[in-house]
């Protein structure tokens, strides 16, 4: 299932990584922030990220973690945004997030690079299965399905990446996490 996700997601231009545990995740994320040349990072707190001690990771990558000011301003200023996702769909290479909270919507959309952190056990086989799972509970206020970077083909049908949303989408799957089930 993971392999199928990787194939589909990469075909859409998503960069996919997988690490065994939080320690490896910290190392990888630091490297990714550094390689992206991000100076300012915005993130949305979540248990999954708390366990990764992101403040340290960001500063180790020689970037500034934006915490002050309005979320509109932070998200618009950041070179890279980090949020967590709940579900992934192998069939389509899609990430799914309850984006009811404003910061999740803006941090995942406004910066040119988005880094999604995702527990491996959230992987679902098909789109239909994901919809059926969601239908079983109360539908959140704002459900976001994200499949690859922002794209357009509106001028001469030439595929161009990064219109209004991020031009790069990176996902890091973590096999095992601390505090599993409380993300």
């Amino acid at each position: 299932m993971y392999e199928s996700f990787v194939t589909k997601a990469r075909a859409l231009g998503t960069e996919v990584y997988r690490v065994d545990d939080p320690a490896a995740a910290k190392q990888l994320i630091e490297k990714l922030i550094r390689e992206a040349g991000a100076k300012k990072v915005a993130l949305v707190p979540a248990p999954l990220l708390d366990a990764l001690d992101m403040e340290k990771v960001v500063s180790a990558a020689r970037a500034e973690l934006l915490t002050a000011g309005s979320v509109r301003k932070r998200a618009d200023e950041a070179d890279l945004g980090i949020t967590t996702f709940d579900l992934a769909i192998a069939e389509t290479g899609t990430l799914v997030q309850d984006a009811t909270a404003l910061d999740r919507r803006l941090v995942s959309m406004l910066p040119p690079v988005h880094l999604a952190v995702m527990p491996l056990d959230g992987l679902t086989a098909t789109f239909r299965q994901a919809i059926a799972n969601l239908a079983a509970g109360e539908i959140p206020g704002y459900l976001a399905f994200v499949s690859g970077p922002s794209r357009t083909a509106d001028i001469e049908r030439v595929l161009t990446i990064g219109v209004h949303g991020p031009g790069r989408l990176i996902v890091v799957f973590i096999d095992e996490q601390e505090g599993r089930g409380s993300r």
């Binding site: 899609t94 009811t100 789109f127 239909r128 059926a132 539908i139 399905f145 499949s147 949303g165």
Partner: peptide, 28 residues
Amino acid sequence: APILEVLPRSATAQHITSYVTMITGPVP
């Protein structure tokens, strides 16, 4: 599900569009 299985495939030959957004009531 079935509608979104045909719509992007038939419209632009995509498995799914980059963004699918489902809005249920007002949000912050």
